[in-house]
């Protein structure tokens, strides 16, 4: 599935991934490929994106996460590479 992590200034991550774990407003959510369409508020915390080779971590705060047609978009007001 395709994952993009976007902050107001720029796209922090854009690529294929196998799994995403995101800090939602009420706890962590895990997204795997072929997830049902989904829209949730984000809290603040650590977002991890597992790709074929490695696992990347980002600190995110505010915004939302959306899954549509196997595309995951994390749209956060703050997103930094950890």
């Amino acid at each position: 599935m395709r994952v993009t992590v976007i902050s107001p200034e720029h796209a922090v991550f854009d690529g294929e991934a196998e799994a995403v774990v995101a800090p939602a407003y009420d706890g962590e959510v895990g997204i795997l490929p072929r997830h049902a369409p989904f829209l949730t508020l984000l809290g603040s915390g650590r977002l991890t994106v597992r790709t074929a080779g490695e696992t990347k971590a980002f600190g995110v705060e505010g915004g939302f996460l959306q899954v549509v047609n196997d595309v995951v978009r994390v749209v956060a007001e703050r997103a930094d590479v950890e």
């Binding site: 939602a24 407003y25 009420d26 049902a36 369409p37 989904f38 829209l39 949730t40 508020l41 505010g62 915004g63 939302f64 959306q66 899954v67 549509v68 047609n69 007001e77």
Partner: peptide
């Protein structure tokens, strides 16, 4: 596809965040 999405916590609470954003 997006209209049938699972929405958490609710459309109203999401909009309360997304509109000012």
């Amino acid at each position: 596809a997006a209209a049938n999405a699972i929405i958490r916590p609710s459309v109203d609470e999401l909009l309360a965040t997304i509109l000012p954003q």
